[in-house]
Amino acid sequence: MPNPPTRRPGKHPIQAAPTTSADVPAAREPRGARRKRETRARLLEAALRLMAEKGMEGAAINEITEAADVGFGSFYNHFESKEAIYAALTDWVFEDFADEVDRAIGGLSDPAQVMSVSVRHTLLRARREPIWGEFLIRESFAARNLNRGLGPRLLRDIRRGIAAKRFVIADPLMSFISAGGMILTAIAVELRFAIAGGLQASALRDFGFSGENVPERTAAILLQLMGLPRSEAEEIAHRPLPGVVLPNQGI
């Protein structure tokens, strides 16, 4: 699983090893600093897995340190509380990814294409990184996260589409709720049913679910929800996808 990015020192969860010529080569990194970084990374990976499964309240600090194979006291060398490590995770899962998507859509002027790109990248990342996707599903609609990351930006894009007369929507708030629910449900179907296999996947196949092109199909339906004709929505949803630059280091 890729490390969270480190664009804002001190705020992000995992301090990744240097990867560019402008950085100090990893071989010259002091041993103590490397060990501290690696311990922090293990703690965050363990916290992400546990909190994706149980939520913040359900994951205890001793469970995190045990899963990370780190001494209990070492936790407090990196985070002052469970809430602090949760904040580091949500900053990465919600804010950092949303920032990267915003950069990808920066050159696009059509609100419909902006929405399509954002939705497709979200589903594609959840497919590549299932734990990231599970955490997103669990925590997106938690009250403490409603003003962070992808949700507010989805509402922003809906409002821009309305202002540009690209979207024809009678109730923007309900359209936002419907869009957010559809995105998270599509992620859940892929992660919990289609990818996992078993009886759930078989049941979905009985309903005609093939699991193919789910990001594009989700984007197309959302654009129709925004008032676009079906043919146009499907064409936009299958356009080439601008890249999102994500860190390529493993934990």
Rank of each mutant, 00 (worst) to 15 (best):
N3W: 15
P4D: 15
P5Y: 10
P5V: 12
T6P: 00
R7Y: 04
K11H: 02
H12M: 02
P13S: 12
A16W: 07
A16L: 06
A17G: 11
T20F: 07
T20C: 06
D23S: 02
V24R: 03
R35F: 11
K36L: 11
K36H: 14
R37K: 13
E38M: 01
E38I: 03
R40F: 10
A41S: 01
L44P: 05
L44W: 00
A46H: 05
A46D: 07
R49V: 15
E53C: 06
E53L: 09
K54Q: 10
G55Y: 11
A59H: 04
A60T: 12
A60R: 13
N62K: 13
E63Q: 02
I64S: 00
A67F: 05
S74C: 02
F75R: 01
Y76E: 13
H78Q: 00
E80D: 06
K82Q: 13
A84T: 08
A84D: 07
Y86N: 03
A87C: 13
T90V: 14
D91E: 13
F94C: 03
F94V: 03
E100N: 12
V101C: 08
G106N: 09
G107V: 00
S109M: 15
P111K: 02
A112S: 04
A112D: 02
A112I: 03
Q113Y: 15
M115Y: 05
S116W: 02
V117H: 06
R120H: 09
L124E: 13
R125P: 12
E129I: 02
E129V: 06
G133H: 05
E134Q: 06
F135Y: 04
L136H: 11
I137M: 03
I137A: 04
E139H: 10
E139P: 07
S140Y: 08
F141W: 11
L146P: 05
N147E: 13
G149N: 09
G149S: 09
G149D: 12
L150P: 08
G151N: 10
P152Q: 03
R153D: 14
L155F: 03
L155M: 06
R156F: 08
R156I: 08
R159G: 15
R159S: 15
R160L: 15
A163F: 10
A164D: 14
I169F: 04
D171A: 01
S178Y: 02
G180Y: 12
G180H: 11
A186P: 01
A186G: 06
F193W: 14
A194N: 14
I195V: 15
G198S: 07
Q200V: 09
S202Q: 15
A203K: 02
L204G: 01
F207A: 10
F209M: 15
P215G: 09
E216L: 01
A220T: 06
A220I: 04
L223N: 08
M226S: 03
L228Q: 07
E232V: 07
A233Q: 00
I236K: 01
I236Y: 06
P242D: 05
P242I: 04
L246H: 01
P247D: 12
P247W: 10
N248W: 09
Q249V: 11
G250P: 13
